[in-house]
């Protein structure tokens, strides 16, 4: 092993993997929460929605579009003041979280919105005919009925998110991205870059695999 990858510090690789997983999971949880909320706002306030409101829709929609359009590497730099305000520093794994979450939530929100649009209008009408309140429709109809789409969307988002953690690594977030860039690319140790890449690929495959299984299990269509 050491002959094959002479420059790899395995303990350092493990620490970096832990940091990447930390960034992925924590930002994943927040992205999920913000994405579902934003997706619901987009769906519900749109024309013909349960809480139709043109102004709210337009503001939310513009916000989502703007943050989705900004390249991630620029977003990190733009958000430095906010990061310092929330986390207290701009270096380290935690410091990467705000920009990763703000970068991924709008993307996931659009996927949630698409999933909600796939819910049969007839089912919503049937729920109304049974006297369901709007809150009951959201909680008992819209979210459960769009769950497979939301889970598939979350899988795609998580994978995009891992890419972003690696990019954040270049500006000092730590994790496999930092390792691959500093110890690998800059120090010209291609074996380090290679191992870091393989680990990232394995994480991606595992997430895709688990996501597919859950999506299939909840899909009774």
């Amino acid at each position: 092993m050491n002959q094959l990858f002479p420059h790899v510090d395995w303990m350092g690789m493990l620490t970096a993997t832990g940091q990447t997983l930390y960034m992925t999971l924590v930002s994943g949880v927040f992205t999920f929460i913000f994405g579902v909320i934003l997706g619901l706002v987009l769906f519900l306030t749109a024309k013909g929605g349960l809480y139709e409101n043109a102004i709210t829709y337009r503001i939310t929609s513009s916000f989502v579009n703007i943050f989705r359009a900004i390249p991630f590497i620029i977003l990190i730099i733009l958000l430095i003041p906010l990061t310092v305000l929330i986390i207290g520093t701009m270096i380290g794994a935690s410091a990467a979280l705000p920009s990763i979450i703000i970068g991924a939530s709008p993307f996931f929100a659009r996927l949630v919105e698409i999933g909600l649009h796939e819910v049969d209008k007839g089912v919503i009408e049937a729920s109304q005919s049974m006297g369901a309140t709007r809150f009951q429709i959201i909680w008992k109809v819209l979210l459960p009925e769009s769950l497979p789409s939301i889970i598939s969307g979350m899988t795609v988002t998580l994978i995009a998110l891992i890419g972003n953690t690696a990019m954040a690594g270049v500006v000092g977030a730590g994790g496999l991205g930092t390792l691959a860039y500093n110890d690998g690319f800059e120090a010209n140790n291609n074996d380090v870059t290679f191992v870091a890449t393989i680990i990232i690929l394995v994480i991606v495959f595992i997430i895709q695999f688990i996501g597919d299984i859950i999506a299939r299990r909840v899909d009774k269509r």
């Binding site: 089912v123 009408e125 049937a126 049974m130 006297g131 459960p144 769950l147």
Partner: peptide, 16 residues
Amino acid sequence: RKQIGMIFQHFNLLWS
């Protein structure tokens, strides 16, 4: 509305 039941052409059941 709880006093008025309704059924539909396409059933409109919750598939989940």
